[in-house]
């Protein structure tokens, strides 16, 4: 692991919301092709860490490097950075006033300057991959939660990002729909996409994750490959956590 060619490098990251300090010094590296799963109790700062990675939250201190380039720098092009980092939200956040196809093509067309035909071709291909090709003309409100989340994933993919961030992508779903979304994420991981996933799905973490990060009170309390993470947890809080969720 050569630190210098890490895809993402986070160093000394702090984030406070007013008086409340949520991130208290995060240092980590994420290599290309890794699937990092972040777990932890609610309020431990895992979502904030994820949101800080694509600067939806501005860090109070510390820096983030993406392909060796400091994106937390005052003069960094935040919008370009975000284009290269897809994000999937708990609440899907599809644009309700646009069709599925339009949801997926507006980014590539406006930001990547793709032609309409090209953008639509890519979008339809992606929709086929997640089995929603026939819903291209539908509006988000006509879809089920699982379908919406699959669309949200391919919408982010349409921007051809180098990293995909998932912020509890299955937490707002009915249980029977969790599987179809996780399936899509597994396929994505297999295809070699670098992924950072905040989730409570331990099965997914164990099966797909290359590294699992346990966050506790604003710091990374433990990180390890799944076998070691689940088989031989060292941190006391992690043990307690695992005993509750497994």
């Amino acid at each position: 692991m050569n630190g210098n060619d890490a895809l993402i490098r986070v160093s000394g990251l702090y984030k406070s919301f007013g008086e409340l300090e949520v991130l208290k010094g995060i240092d980590t590296r994420i290599q290309k092709g890794e699937v990092v799963v972040i777990v932890g109790a609610s309020g431990s700062g895992k979502s904030t860490l994820l949101r800080t990675l694509n600067l939806l939250e501005n860090p109070t201190a510390g820096s983030i490097f993406f392909e060796g380039e400091e994106v937390t720098h005052r003069k960094a092009d935040v919008n370009r950075h975000r284009q290269r980092m897809g994000m999937v939200f708990q609440q899907f956040n599809l644009f309700p006033h646009m069709t599925i196809l339009k949801n997926m093509t507006i980014g590539p067309m406006k930001l990547l300057k793709k032609s309409k035909e090209e953008a639509e071709k890519t979008a339809l291909e992606l929709l086929r991959r997640v089995g929603l090709e026939d819903r291209a003309g539908a509006y988000p409100n006509q879809l089920s939660g699982g379908q919406k989340q699959r669309v949200a994933i391919v919408r982010a993919l349409a921007m051809e990002p180098e990293v995909m961030l998932f912020d509890e992508p299955t937490s707002a779903l009915d249980p029977e729909m969790v599987g179809e979304v996780l399936e899509v994420m597994k396929d994505l991981a297999k295809s070699g996409m670098t992924m950072v996933v905040v989730t409570h799905e331990m099965g997914f973490a164990r099966e797909v994750g290359t590294r699992i990060m346990f966050m506790n009170e604003g710091v990374i309390a433990e990180e390890a490959p799944p076998a070691e993470f689940f088989g031989n947890p060292k941190n006391q809080r992690l043990k307690e956590f695992l005993s509750k969720v497994l």
Binding site: N79, G86, M87, F89, Q91, N93, H97
Partner: peptide, 30 residues
């Protein structure tokens, strides 16, 4: 308009103005 709409627009790489124009204003107008 849900904060998530703004975040979704921004996370795709749209800047503040573009997000307003393409995603927030059409919904707000309606």
């Amino acid at each position: 308009i849900d904060k998530g709409q703004n975040e979704a627009g921004r996370s795709l790489g749209f800047n503040y103005a573009q997000t307003m124009v393409h995603f927030i204003m059409p919904q707000a107008f309606k």
